[in-house]
Simulated scan of single mutants.
Amino acid sequence: MGLCLRLASQGALIIIVVTEEWLGFMTSAQEPLPNVQLRSIPNVIPSELSRAADWSGFVEAVYSMMDEPVDRLIDSIEPMVSVILADVFMPWVADVAKRRGIPVTWLFPMATTVFSVFYHFDILLSKGHFPANSSGKFSGLFSFIF
C-alpha cells in the first residue's frame, strides 16, 4: 500500500485488485484515498479465515483460478491499464498482460532478509549451511531459546 500511495502522490491512478473478501477487510479499515481505487474479483481462492487448513489448496487456487477473473476485470477498467505491477508469486499475470500488450513488472513482497538469503544462497551452500541440520539438535542461541 505504501508503494501505491507513493505512486499516486506523483499523479498515477492506482487500481488495487483483491478478492471480494479482502475488499471487505480493506474498505472497513481505511478511508478512500485519492488516485487509489480498490477493485475486486470473486472469491475464487479459499477464505483468508481458513486457508491455513489447506495451504496447498490455497496455493493451487492462486495459480489456477485467479487469472480468468482478473482478465475480465482488466477489460472493464477505464482508462485502459498502462502497466501491471504484480506479486512474483502470481506468474500467470505475465500471460494476462502479454495478451493485451501491457508491460508488467514484479514486486517481491518479502523482507530484505529473505532477499538476502536468496541473493547469498551460493555462499550458504559453499559454507555448508544448507541443507540445514535436521537432527533436531540446536546449538548456540537456539539451544537457549528451546
Rank of each mutant, 00 (worst) to 15 (best):
S64I: 00
K137C: 03
L124N: 01
V83P: 00
P46E: 08
V104A: 14
P79M: 13
M90N: 08
V104H: 03
A53S: 15
V59P: 03
L5S: 11
F130E: 14
F118K: 10
M80N: 14
I15D: 07
L23W: 02
H129Y: 10
P32I: 08
I145V: 12
V117F: 12
L7H: 10
I84C: 01
L124H: 07
P79R: 14
I41M: 03
V17K: 00
V59A: 09
A8Q: 12
G136E: 02
V36A: 04
G24F: 06
I14K: 00
C4W: 00
W106L: 13
H129N: 07
L38D: 02
M1W: 12
L107S: 14
S9L: 05
D122F: 03
T27Q: 14
I41A: 02
Y63S: 05
P131N: 00
D67K: 13
S28V: 06
S82R: 14
E31F: 11
V18Q: 07
L73P: 03
D54M: 07
A61G: 04
I145F: 12
E68G: 00
S116F: 06
F142W: 09
R51G: 01
S47F: 09
F58R: 06
F115L: 07
L7Q: 08
W106F: 15
P46T: 09
T113Y: 09
F115M: 02
A61M: 07
A97R: 04
D54A: 12
Y63E: 10
K137E: 06
H129S: 08
M26E: 09
M1I: 11
D75M: 13
G136S: 04
N43P: 06
V81F: 05
F118I: 13
L73W: 11
K127D: 08
S50N: 15
L49R: 13
F89N: 15
P79W: 15
P79T: 11
A111V: 02
V83T: 04
V88A: 10
D54V: 09
I123D: 10
L107D: 04
E60V: 01
G57E: 09
P79L: 12
K137H: 08
L3V: 14
G136R: 01
G140W: 13
P34R: 07
F108K: 06
S126N: 12
